[in-house]
Simulated assay, not measured.
Amino acid sequence: MEKTINKLLVANRGVPAVRVMHTCRDRKIPTTAVYSTPDRLAQHVFMADTAVHIGEAPPIESYLNMENMIKAAELSRSNAIHPGWGFLAENESFAQMVEDAGLIWVGPPPAVIRAMGDKIQAKELALKANVPTIPGISSVTDVKQIARWIKDEKVDFPIMIKAASGGGGKGMVKVERKEDLGQALAQARSEAKKAFGDDTLLVEKYIERGRHIEVQVVADNHGSVVHLYERECTIQRRNQKIIEE
């Protein structure tokens, strides 16, 4: 039997939270906002029907705190959670935790997130399907590993160090010279840990003057699957899309 959303907790802040709440207003679905201490006066807090404080400023204590999100849903009597994008949106452990708590997870099933939310695993699936991928190495732990790959594969700089989890341009550092590898690796690892709670990294050859083209796919629980055609997303700032057309 399909459950009905009676009240939706938006596990995010800023634009993602506001956009979800606008849609909920149109559909007359009550919402719950979550906020860290510095965000107590943010727009999404006042848009929601209920607001719950979930922790202090560091995301790991608030917007990445899965236990606090579940507690906030229970406290506000929300029976569904929408993750927005970024933070916990691509965390399969959180999706599973939501379902295990008897709540409605508004998003892809945990198994799908597990397969596609991790760039390393997604790349392995692409290779199995004979889809071309950018040359690189996975699960990078130290500079020597990167230097060995550059030497063995005769890779020219620049290269890109990426967080395996999440998105939004966080945890991505372009490296122009061998001398900068140590600092870049530490920076990417730190950003990934703070943004996604996971400091697993991969390294790829940097594609200069490349174009970012997306084809987005939407599916539901009834077996309906559609694609939303191509999107040109090349115009970016700090590895984040500014214009999609």
Rank of each mutant, 00 (worst) to 15 (best):
146 I>K: 02
53 H>I: 00
6 N>Q: 12
111 A>M: 00
169 G>D: 09
35 Y>F: 15
103 L>Q: 03
198 D>M: 07
45 V>K: 02
194 K>N: 13
192 A>H: 10
17 A>F: 10
58 P>A: 05
111 A>I: 00
191 E>L: 06
101 A>F: 01
108 P>S: 15
206 Y>E: 03
234 T>P: 02
9 L>S: 02
63 Y>P: 07
177 R>C: 02
228 L>A: 14
153 E>L: 00
136 G>F: 05
105 W>M: 07
211 R>E: 15
41 L>S: 10
40 R>F: 07
201 L>H: 06
83 P>V: 02
155 V>R: 06
224 S>R: 15
177 R>H: 08
1 M>F: 06
81 I>W: 03
160 M>Q: 07
135 P>M: 04
147 A>F: 00
174 K>Q: 08
83 P>W: 08
28 K>V: 11
127 L>K: 15
158 P>K: 12
187 Q>C: 04
95 A>D: 11
193 K>L: 14
212 H>Y: 09
158 P>W: 15
43 Q>Y: 05
142 D>E: 14
233 C>H: 04
132 P>N: 04
227 H>C: 07
4 T>F: 11
174 K>S: 01
196 F>L: 14
23 T>F: 02
105 W>R: 00
92 E>D: 15
100 D>W: 01
112 V>C: 03
186 A>W: 01
200 T>M: 08
118 D>C: 13
162 K>G: 06
29 I>P: 03
204 E>R: 09
205 K>M: 10
17 A>Y: 07
194 K>S: 10
21 M>S: 08
120 I>K: 00
106 V>H: 04
130 N>W: 09
39 D>Q: 01
205 K>C: 11
40 R>I: 04
114 R>S: 14
5 I>Q: 06
116 M>D: 10
233 C>N: 02
116 M>Y: 09
107 G>D: 03
178 K>N: 07
128 K>R: 15
133 T>V: 15
238 R>E: 12
38 P>G: 04
47 M>T: 06
22 H>T: 14
137 I>V: 13
126 A>S: 12
48 A>G: 07
144 K>D: 15
171 G>N: 03
81 I>Q: 01
41 L>M: 08
96 Q>E: 11
46 F>H: 14
158 P>Q: 14
130 N>A: 15
145 Q>M: 05
236 Q>G: 02
202 L>F: 14
